[in-house]
Amino acid sequence: MTAPELIGHDELDDVIAHLRLAVSPSELHGSLCGFLTGNGRLGRRPLLEVLHLDGGGVTVPPVDQAVLDQLVRQSEVELADPELGFEPLLPADDRPLHERADALVDWCRGFLGGFGLGGPDALANVSDESKEILRDLGSIASASLDFGNEDEDEDALIEVHEFVRMGAMLLFTECHIPNQSSSDTLH
């Protein structure tokens, strides 16, 4: 049995366009990841309802629902991956720098909103280091980006991307291991 194909940015963008949602693929993925990190549980509720993106009672065709369901499973597996394989869902590296940077800002904005929807105790139960990561994600989410030297800007985006990626995994781990602070050693 082969593993299912990973949902990519463009595939999710097609579903969002088809459903006429007012959210970018990166922001939707960020919202989902934040929700899962904050101990949110979908249960049998549809993803769009859980993330409050179904305003107007969007009817989701089965083919689009299958993509959204796969995105949920994919995100759960990647966030919990002990090999640190998680990646925020962003446009491909061959897309313009400003597009990728804007998508990372959208992802952070979505993550914070989703984290808030995850559960009332999520923030109360994280370490000071994790609270600092959340504050940093907030700074990124509210950033107004200026571009100058393309090589330097590309390097800066890579660094910010890596911080966001690792920060999300650290927060997920801390929120899902009872009484485990992010500075403790895992055995």
Rank of each mutant, 00 (worst) to 15 (best):
Thr2Trp: 12
Ala3Cys: 02
Glu5Gln: 15
Glu5Cys: 03
Ile7Arg: 00
Gly8Phe: 02
His9Pro: 08
Asp10Tyr: 05
Glu11Cys: 01
Asp13Trp: 00
Asp14Arg: 14
Val15Trp: 00
Ile16Asp: 01
Ala17Phe: 08
Ala17Cys: 12
Ala17Ser: 15
His18Gly: 06
Arg20Trp: 01
Leu21Asp: 11
Ala22Cys: 12
Ser24Glu: 06
Ser24Gln: 06
Ser24Trp: 07
Pro25Lys: 00
His29Phe: 04
Gly30Met: 10
Gly34Ala: 11
Gly34Leu: 06
Phe35Ser: 04
Leu36Gly: 03
Leu36Asn: 04
Thr37Asn: 03
Asn39Cys: 13
Gly40Met: 10
Gly40Cys: 12
Leu42Ile: 01
Leu48Cys: 07
Leu51Gln: 03
Leu51Trp: 02
Leu51Arg: 01
His52Thr: 08
Leu53Ala: 04
Gly56Trp: 02
Gly57Glu: 05
Pro61Val: 06
Pro62Glu: 13
Val63Phe: 13
Asp64Tyr: 00
Asp64Gln: 09
Ala66Tyr: 01
Ala66Pro: 01
Val67Tyr: 00
Leu68Asp: 12
Leu71Pro: 14
Arg73Val: 13
Ser75Cys: 09
Glu76Ala: 14
Glu76Thr: 12
Val77Ser: 13
Ala80Glu: 10
Ala80Asp: 14
Asp81Gln: 09
Glu87Asn: 14
Pro88Lys: 10
Pro88Val: 13
Leu89Phe: 05
Leu89Gln: 09
Leu89Arg: 04
Ala92Lys: 13
Ala92Ser: 15
Arg95Pro: 00
Pro96Cys: 03
Pro96Glu: 07
His98Phe: 12
Asp102Leu: 14
Asp102Asn: 13
Leu104Tyr: 11
Val105Gly: 03
Trp107Gln: 05
Cys108Tyr: 04
Phe111Thr: 05
Gly114Phe: 04
Gly116Arg: 09
Gly118Lys: 03
Gly118Glu: 02
Pro120Arg: 15
Ser127Phe: 13
Asp128Lys: 13
Asp128Thr: 15
Ser130Lys: 08
Ser130Asp: 10
Lys131Ala: 11
Lys131Gly: 11
Ile133Lys: 01
Leu134Asp: 04
Leu137Thr: 10
Leu137Gln: 09
Gly138Asp: 05
Gly138Val: 07
Gly138Thr: 09
Ser142Gln: 15
Ser144Pro: 00
Leu145Ala: 09
Asn149Cys: 06
Asp151Tyr: 07
Asp151Gln: 15
Asp153Arg: 11
Glu154His: 11
Ala156Gln: 14
Ala156Trp: 08
Leu157Gln: 10
Leu157Cys: 06
His161Lys: 09
Met166Ala: 14
Met169Arg: 14
Leu171Ile: 12
Leu171Pro: 02
Leu171Met: 06
Ile177Met: 11
Asn179Met: 12
Gln180His: 15
Asp184Pro: 05
Thr185Asn: 09
Leu186Cys: 11
His187Tyr: 08
His187Phe: 09
His187Lys: 08
